[in-house]
């Protein structure tokens, strides 16, 4: 296979033109590069290739930095195992689906089911996310997944949420989603700005963020600001806003359903 790529000055970095590659070809190449010891890859002209980063499981936990120019297809970073992916543009559905660890940064908008079932690592989205983001996210022990979104989310945010943290900065407008946190039984969601009672599911408790929450927010929002310097956000100004916390009323929402 002839690979159109050029090495940069750094030996462990490589640049790839993905314009004529299909999904399987591109991901196979990424795997070969990882096994050959490359740590940094820049993909140019990505257009719809799916599962980027998914085929990069290695028992010895090799880690790659993948920078994407263009628009990756669905399931970007699905089952991600410790790698870091940056997209200079928008992403489609299923970003970070069931990811285990690592980081995904989207300098644009991400589609539906962003962070579905993720159990570790962080996702930063500059713009908005689609429907059912953070669906069934879960945590265990030290593993606590985090999604930070610059804008807002559509309906069913945090459905069946069982753990982890979701932060919506609401930079570009109000939160209009409905059915937020239906079936939520773990984790926490923080929304900057007001959320009405009728927007959240019956399993959700609405409160104001307290001091411990503010520490969590400070930590992850400073991470967000660091990744999107072009937004020129002021951390203290963002923190000094009305923060709504959504948490589950019970860790056993259906405990009384059965005879």
């Amino acid at each position: 296979m002839e690979i159109s790529c050029s090495r940069t000055s750094n030996e462990s970095a490589i640049e790839i033109d993905a314009s004529h590659m299909d999904t399987r070809e591109l991901n196979g190449l990424l795997r070969e590069l990882m096994l050959a010891g490359y740590e940094r890859v820049v993909l140019r002209n990505v257009c719809g290739q799916r599962y980027i980063g998914t085929r990069l499981y290695s028992p010895e936990r090799r880690v790659m930095n993948i920078e994407i120019h263009g628009t990756p297809g669905n399931d970007l970073g699905a089952f991600l195992f410790g790698h870091r992916i940056i997209v200079h543009g928008n992403a489609q559905d299923g970003v970070g689906n069931t990811m285990e660890s690592g980081e995904i940064v989207i300098a644009g908008r991400a589609g539906d089911v962003t962070g579905m079932s993720m159990r570790g690592g962080r996702i930063f989205v500059k713009g908005d996310v689609g429907y059912r983001a953070a669906l069934h996210m879960k945590e265990h022990g030290q593993k606590r997944p985090v999604i930070v979104v610059g804008g807002t989310a559509q309906d069913f945010l945090g459905e069946y949420m069982a753990g982890g943290i979701v932060i919506l900065l609401g930079l570009y407008g109000a939160h209009n989603a409905s059915f937020i946190g239906s079936g939520m039984h773990g984790g926490a969601m923080y929304l900057r700005g007001p959320v009405r009672e009728e927007q959240v599911g019956s399993h959700v408790h609405i409160s104001r963020a307290d001091e411990t929450d503010m520490e969590i927010l400070r930590d992850h929002i400073s991470g967000f600001i660091e990744r999107f310097p072009d937004l020129a956000l002021d951390l203290e100004h963002i923190l000094d806003s009305e923060w709504t916390k959504l948490s589950p009323r019970s860790s056993r929402p259906y405990g009384k359903l059965y005879a």
């Binding site: 399931d75 559905d93 299923g94 689906n97 089911v113 579905m116 159990r119 059912r132 669906l135 069934h136 879960k138 945590e139 265990h140 022990g141 593993k143 459905e159 069946y160 069982a162 753990g163 079936g183 039984h185 773990g186 860790s251 056993r252 929402p253 259906y254 405990g255």
Partner: peptide, 21 residues
């Protein structure tokens, strides 16, 4: 069981009816 399922101890482990993807 919680460690194997990767969820907190004592919470309901809820499998939704459909796969949402």
């Amino acid at each position: 069981v919680a460690a194997t399922r990767m969820i907190p101890e004592g919470t309901d482990a809820i499998s939704p009816a459909p796969h949402h993807d």
